[in-house]
Write a protein that binds this DNA or RNA. Structure first.
Length: 424
RNA sequence: GGAGAGGUGGCCGAGUAGGUCGAAGGCGCUCGCCUGCUAAGCGAGUGUACGGGGUAAACCCGUACCGAGGGUUCGAAUCCCUCCCUCUCCGCCA
């Protein structure tokens, strides 16, 4: 959510910068709505001030017969207040609804562009492996090795689910542990294990609601949502809190499964583990002072990259252009891992600085010092990493001609010393 | 799922025959004083949001907030309704 006062004073500038995102943008109603709200508010508050004064007078008067006229008059005033409050409420709701639909303003350094084709490659690491044979896609490798079973997952649940078995299941678990250990031990994040279902306020706080409800799984009998990313429960840890400056930056890492409807992606990535309704992810979340968030985004990005380096997986880092930015993000770097089966780089992590956009929605503030006015923190997060896609990358990049897969050295301690996954 | 108790300011905790309560008192914290040091003591201060004014920083005025949302009333932390959460006991269960 944008700052109401900032929007009021810089409407043209905001409009211009939001247009860089592309898509439809309609701020035309803002000016009127805002003025209407303030006019109603002033009128109602003036009447309330009067009512408070007169009511106090009535309270002090022993003989109520002396103030019958005042009581009658206040009865009318109260009626008018009631009407004004109702109008005010609807104006505020309309204004709020409008504000909630406005995406974040892109960071000054974001490259201007229309689509993912305009994203900027920042750097790459490692070289795509050269095979003396035709590399297989992970769905073939996985099924031949007996470690991924899509067919039975379809029977148990449906499309876009998977069943991991044996070394596959172990590999998934090993990756989660390796990532959590790295981030907690080397990068000093605090591990948290949050609820996998959240309420409406939490979803609104991080920006999934109200605009993107159709992407979320929702429970029937109670108003809960399955988390689409750990970003939601973890960022909401400090919702409606005022933190002390000395606490910042706060760095959390969390493993959660993620649940997404993937509505509108029919026909894309229909095979394999790339796009599932349920997948595992280790997330990195930071709360920082405003002036530190740019640097913290770089360090967070580095922490996510480190996982791929340890696993010997080639990747590149991409600076998302204005047109490809997510709703809440001011700036995003994607990490794309090389997938030999697709002969393409595919997103495996998305690291974003939300600045105060989520903090304002979620009421996450801090005080620079005792007695200072509360300010909004900046929030950041990134995948460190998407576990399923990491598993895909390992299978495809480390596959051998005989169909086996070499386990990267760093992962072997987590695999009970297993060096190679072969047919069992 | 059944029965009961309760949700007040950073914390503890008063406050129900509705009125002068943003809310006693204590703790904590900040500033000042005092005392070789420390502790104790003394004095003052100590919420947030929105709106208006302003040398737009300070500050001043107003409104709202005593779990959330409605209602009754000239007036509600106090009365009524709905919901949420916490605790205790029973049941059930990993």
């Amino acid at each position: 959510m944008l700052d109401l006062k900032y929007l009021r004073d810089h409407l043209d500038e905001v409009e211009r910068r939001l247009q860089q995102r592309g898509g439809e943008l309609n701020l035309s109603g803002f000016r009127d709505l805002d003025q209407r709200r303030r006019a109603l508010l002033q009128e109602a508050e003036t009447l309330k001030a009067e009512r408070n004064q007169v009511s106090a007078l009535i309270g002090r008067t022993k003989d109520k017969s002396q103030v019958q006229g005042e009581i009658a008059r206040m009865k009318e005033v109260s009626e008018r207040i009631k009407g004004l409050d109702a109008e005010l409420k609807s104006a505020e709701e309309a204004l709020q609804a409008l504000l909630m639909q406005i995406p974040n303003i892109p960071h000054e350094q974001v490259p201007v562009g229309q689509s993912e084709n305009d994203n900027l490659e920042v750097r790459s690491w490692g070289a795509p492996p050269r095979f003396s044979f035709t590399p297989k896609a992970h769905w073939d490798l996985g099924e031949e090795l007996g470690i991924i079973d899509f067919e039975r997952a379809g029977k148990i649940t449906g499309a876009r689910f998977s069943l991991m078995r044996g070394a596959g299941a172990r590999l998934e678990r090993a990756l989660i542990n390796l990532m959590l250990d790295l981030h907690t031990q080397e990068h000093k994040y605090v591990e948290v294990l949050p609820p996998f279902m959240v309420n409406r306020d939490s979803m609104t706080g991080t920006g999934q609601l109200p605009k993107f409800e159709s992407d979320l799984f929702h429970t029937d009998d109670v108003d809960f949502f399955l988390v689409p990313t750990a970003e939601v429960p973890v960022t909401n840890i400090h919702r409606d809190e005022i933190l002390a400056a000395a606490q910042l930056p706060i760095s959390y890492t969390a493993y959660t499964p993620c649940f997404r409807k993937e509505a509108g992606s029919h026909g894309r990535d229909v095979r394999g583990l790339i796009r599932q309704h349920q997948f595992n992810k280790v997330e990195l979340v930071k709360f920082t002072r405003p002036e530190d968030s740019d640097a913290e985004l770089q360090s967070l990005l580095g922490h996510a990259e480190k996982v791929l380096q340890i696993l010997e997986l080639p990747y590149r880092v991409v600076d998302l252009c204005s047109g490809d930015l997510g709703f809440s993000a001011a700036r995003t770097f994607d990490i794309e891992v090389w997938l030999p089966g697709q002969q393409a780089y595919r997103e495996i992590s998305s690291c974003s600085n939300f600045r105060d956009f989520q903090a304002r929605r979620a009421g996450i503030r801090f005080r620079r010092e005792e007695g200072a006015k509360p300010e909004f923190v900046h929030t950041l997060n990134g995948s460190g990493l998407a576990v399923g896609r990491t598993l895909v990358a390992i299978l495809e990049n480390h596959q051998q001609e005989d169909g086996s897969v070499v386990v990267p050295g760093a992962l072997r301690p987590y695999m009970g010393g297993l060096e190679r996954i072969g047919k069992s």
